[in-house]
Design a binder for these strands. Structure first.
Lengths: 130, 130
DNA sequence: CTTGACCTTCCAGTTAATGGAATCCTTATC
DNA sequence: GATAAGGATTCCATTAACTGGAAGGTCAAG
C-alpha cells in the first residue's frame, strides 16, 4: 500500500505519516522505486496513532504503545503492566469528558434557545469547573 | 489571585497561562505592581482550558468555548447550537476512548502476565484498529 | 536591609507538525 | 514514443503551542 492509500485509510495527512516515520513511530518498507510500502500492521498502527493523538495522548505515550507492537520479545508481565497503565489513563480521560458532557448538556437544557441574551449557560459554565 | 496560585489550582504551568493571555484566551487584570490578577472566572476558564486541551480539543475549539463565557450579548440560540456541537464532539471522543479501552482490557485479560514473550496483545492490538 | 520566593518581559529553543519547491515514477492518452 | 496528470520523493522553511532561561522588579520574613 502506498502512502496516499494508507493516509486515506488511516485518516492522516501523508505529511504526518512521513513525519512519524522520521521520528521512528512507523517503519514502512520501501519498494524498488523508492516509494514507501505500508503493510497492514502499519495501517493499524497509524490508525491507532491518529486516534490516540486526537485524544490527547502524547507522542511518547504512543511510542510506548507502538513498542508493544514491535518488541515481540518483551516480557508479557511488562506488556500487561503498560497496558494497565494506559487503561487507567483512558478511564481518567473518559471521566473528564463525562464531566464536560454533563455540564454542557445540563446547560443546553436550561438554555432558552430563543434569541434572548443572558443564557444561563454562561454563569453555570463558570461555576462548573472550579 | 496571582499567577502562581492560579497555575497551581488550574494545574497548568505559569508559562502556559502567560501564553494563553498572549493569544487572547484569558484576560487577567493587572495589579498596581504589574502582576497579573486573576479572578475566579479566570481560574474556571483556565481549568476548563487545561482539561479541554488534554483531551485533544484544539485551541480554536477552546476559543469558541471561551467566547461563550465572554460574550454575554450572544443570542441564546447561538450559545445552544455551539454547546450542542461540542456535545457531539465529546460523545465521539468518549466512544473512541471506549473502543481503545475495550481493546486494551480484553488484551490484559488474555495476556498471561508471566515472563513469557509472545503475549497475544501484540497480534490482537494489530487487528483491533483496522 | 538583605535573602528568597514570586513576579515581570523578552528572546531563543523544542515539539509536532505543515507548506512549498524541485524532482522522480507511473499511467493514460495522443 | 512524447506528453501530461497524478502521486511519490527529498529538503528546507514555517507555524502552533508551548517551554527554558536570562535579566531584572516586588514583597514578606528575619
Amino acid at each position: 500500500m502506498n502512502i496516499g492509500d494508507v493516509a486515506h485509510r488511516a485518516g492522516l495527512p501523508a505529511k504526518t505519516i512521513r513525519y512519524y516515520e522520521d521520528i521512528g513511530l512507523v517503519k514502512p518498507l520501501r519498494s524498488q522505486n523508492g516509494y514507501r510500502r505500508f503493510r497492514d500492521s502499519d495501517l493499524h498502527k497509524l490508525s491507532f496513532l491518529g486516534r490516540a493523538r486526537s485524544l490527547g495522548f502524547s507522542i511518547e505515550d504512543c511510542r510506548t504503545l507502538m513498542a508493544l507492537y514491535e518488541d515481540h520479545s518483551r516480557a508479557s508481565a511488562d506488556v500487561k503492566r503498560i497496558a494497565r497503565q494506559n487503561l487507567a489513563k483512558i478511564e481518567e480521560k473518559i471521566a473528564e469528558l463525562q464531566a464536560m458532557h454533563d455540564t454542557l448538556s445540563h446547560l443546553v437544557k436550561k438554555c432558552h434557545g430563543d434569541d434572548r441574551p443572558d443564557c444561563p449557560i454562561l454563569t453555570d459554565l463558570a461555576k462548573a469547573h472550579g
